[in-house]
Amino acid sequence: MDFDFTDDQLALRDAVARWVDKGFGFERRHHLAKAGGATRAVWQELADLGLTGLAVPSEHGGMGFGAVEAMVVMEELGTGLVNAPFAAGALVAPALLQAAPAEVQAEWLPRIAERSALVVLAHQERAARYRLHHVSTQAQRSGDQWLLTGSKSVVPAGDEADAFIVPARLSGAVDATDGIGLFLVRPGTAGCSVRGHATQDGARAAELLLQACAATLVCEQGFEVLEEAVDIGIAALCAEGVGLMGKLTAITVDYMNTRKQFGTTLASFQALRHRIADVKMQLELARSMSYYASLKLGEPAPARRRALSQAKVQLGQSARFVGQQCIQLHGGIGVTDEYIASHYFKRLTMLEMQFGDTLHHLGEVSTRMQDTAGVFG
């Protein structure tokens, strides 16, 4: 199989890398995090590069690129530790909106492509434990409109978003896969309360409370659409994680080549060199599974879902190992807020929890291994 990138994909990678080098240094990132994590301005700069239209179909003003291009962009954003809601707003949201009626698509997809709108998925509920089908938020028809009642937690960039896509139950039990609809909610609508807060990795999230809040129907049979969009989000996280781990490893190697102990550099100690070799092995395992995840996004749902869970398991294991080893190799400076490595470690820790932690996805892989005991069988 040919894993070489095309010329267009390499050009896209270079364009993002140049912006990261010139426009998003650690000093800017650290300032944004200390100021509360608001990154709408960063989102608009990514839009100026044309990146917010990456996954938007061309008929709606976007570029209509696929999973590999998204992976290339996310890896570079991870390398630069860019804390903008790019995956949420430019990859996950367009996938959900493409299931909407034509008039809803025409209203929102061009606005995403041209940077004037940030739409994010608000799906997590307190008792769900990462189960997408656990939806207690209720949707009721009232005349010619839908009213939603319920709450959602840890909505990415929730207090900066222009709209939310909210799964809500039309019928059935709270854990049923049938009867889940997707709705679009605008902040500021009567009955919609948004409470923003900073996150540990220097970004922002919000708690969303809906009390008979008017919403626009995206689709009535929304569970499969939600699954596919979340898989797109997982693939994006895997690519971002590869960028984060690659940069953190490079920072650690550079530190070991300059920091001296007992009159010689840390890099001269064989035991520490072996630990870096183990770190690089985990990085390459994560990279290969990131490629695997992106390539499997076009597969039928059963194969796709298992592949993405496998990739998320490897991401969690690699992120934990690489993060902990690199911080330990730095010593005390590695956990200080003023030093760049600590911020990479925080973001890697957050990635492990998003869209299901390692134990959750290990269970998903186990459940889907029906006919074989081999992980890749």
Rank of each mutant, 00 (worst) to 15 (best):
G181E: 04
A95P: 03
E114D: 15
A87Y: 03
S151N: 13
A15I: 06
H123L: 09
V218Y: 08
S268N: 10
C219N: 13
Q98C: 14
C326H: 04
A70D: 08
G64A: 07
G64D: 11
W19N: 13
A106G: 12
G374K: 10
A163W: 09
W43L: 13
T52A: 11
S151Y: 03
L237H: 12
P300D: 12
K346E: 05
Q325D: 04
W108E: 09
A163N: 06
Q9F: 00
R204T: 05
R29G: 12
C213R: 07
G61H: 01
A35G: 02
Y291T: 11
Y291C: 04
A88D: 13
L132G: 03
L109K: 09
L109W: 05
A88N: 10
F183Y: 10
I327S: 08
E107Y: 04
P300S: 09
D357W: 11
A41F: 03
E107I: 00
G263D: 09
A190V: 04
G25A: 08
S342I: 00
L32V: 02
E59W: 00
L51Q: 05
R259G: 00
Y255W: 13
D371K: 10
L266H: 02
T367P: 00
I251H: 12
E284H: 11
G191R: 07
K346D: 09
G181A: 07
K280A: 05
V154L: 12
V375R: 14
E103F: 07
E220K: 14
S294E: 11
G191H: 08
G36Q: 06
F345T: 01
D21T: 11
I180D: 13
A55K: 15
D231A: 13
D178V: 01
V120C: 03
R126Q: 11
V155G: 10
L244P: 01
A15T: 14
P156W: 09
L272W: 00
Q328M: 05
L297A: 04
M71N: 09
L362P: 00
M369E: 03
G61A: 06
S153A: 12
R305S: 14
F269R: 07
W108T: 06
V155Y: 08
